[in-house]
């Protein structure tokens, strides 16, 4: 039955009821049928129009995004593919330390935020009694997730950099990014866990397993594709974050020496107490207080590299998520 048929039947159903009261006869129902047909036509037309408008809107958004990405990649592409640009120090116009800093910071952030958010999400979905306290916690997490990152950055500056005396350091940056990242990760993992059918949990519990065993051995394996996808996507956000880092991880990238394993030394790459400018912060700094001559070109190259990395993250998230999904559903 097509949509217009259905509308016509509905109208025809309604007609006799109305007709019986007023005493109107065949003419009335014939007219009603006409009205119904025209209504159906109009409905179909507005359906077409709505679909068209939506298609145009989506097209515009896609076009804008693609144009932006293409522009960024095009304007910095040649610079980005220059090996010496990617490996040399900022004093020589390169971004070598920034690349390492960005990845190291991301790694440390995930190292801190993954266990925390996993624990929080498990607690919220499996253990927390539903009540005002839990609702309150969930609301706080939501609020936290919409906190402007500059506020997080300044908070991190006051607490980690000043109060804890960590100075501008990777660890201060990682803590600030954790605050920024945690709410999103908790949400993602929470949703992934909640998406596992209730029957799975019940089955585990009904076999005499504890909630913990059920969560770890039944729910998490089922939720892992969604969790991994979410974590990688949030990694993209963290990777491109600047405002939260300007006052925590700092704006300088001292040269690092990969042969130095003295973790108290400022040039040791693994030293978490050294200041570490990331790619995003580098772009910000180049554009706000450029002292180098070809700042624009370096900035464009850095931006291109950053965007390329985030694209790779997103593609990886899809591929890995899908592969895990396949592995999980068909052993």
């Amino acid at each position: 039955m097509t949509r217009s048929d259905k509308a016509a039947t509905n109208a025809a159903d309604a007609a006799p009821r109305a007709g019986a009261q007023t005493g109107a006869t065949r003419a009335a129902s014939a007219m009603d049928a006409d009205t119904a047909a025209s209504m159906a036509r109009r409905a179909r037309r507005s359906d077409h129009v709505a679909t068209g408008v939506l298609a145009v809107l989506v097209g515009v958004v896609c076009l804008l995004t693609v144009a932006m990405v293409v522009y960024i990649l095009a304007s910095g592409g040649t610079k980005m593919l220059d090996w010496s640009f990617l490996t040399s120090n900022p004093s020589d116009g390169g971004i070598g330390p920034e690349i390492f800093n960005s990845f190291y910071l991301l790694f440390l952030t995930l190292l801190i935020s993954l266990p925390l958010s996993l624990g929080a999400a498990i607690f919220l979905t499996q253990y927390a009694p539903s009540g005002p306290v839990t609702t309150c916690i969930k609301t706080i997490i939501e609020v936290l997730s919409s906190l402007p990152s500059i506020v997080v950055g300044l908070f991190g500056f006051l607490v980690f950099v000043i109060k804890f005396g960590w100075q501008f350091s990777i660890i201060a940056g990682a803590c600030a990014l954790t605050m920024f990242n945690l709410p999103i990760m908790v949400r993602v993992i929470q949703q992934a866990l909640e998406a596992v059918p209730r029957g799975q949990r019940d089955a585990g519990l009904a076999m005499g397993l504890t909630r913990w065993e059920t969560t770890i051995h039944v729910l998490i394996p089922s939720a892992i594709p969604a969790i991994v996808t979410g974590v990688i996507l949030s990694a993209g956000r963290v990777f491109g974050e600047a405002a939260a880092l300007i006052y925590t991880a700092g704006q300088s990238a001292p040269a690092i020496d990969f042969t130095n394993f003295d973790i108290t030394s400022a040039s040791c790459p693994w030293n978490v107490f050294r200041p570490a400018e990331t790619l995003a912060v580098h772009i910000w700094k180049l554009n706000s207080e450029s002292v180098v001559t070809d700042a624009a070109a370096i900035s464009a190259g850095t931006a291109a590299f950053l965007v390329a990395c985030i694209l790779v993250f997103n593609i990886l998230a899809r591929i890995i998520g899908r592969a895990l999904e396949k592995k999980v559903t068909a052993a």
Partner: peptide, 19 residues
């Protein structure tokens, strides 16, 4: 846990694990 081990349950919707 002991009770549930000795009193098993089969549910309305078949719910084998993802294993």
């Amino acid at each position: 846990y002991e009770v549930r081990r000795r009193i098993g349950m089969v549910f309305q919707q078949p719910n084998p694990f993802n294993k």
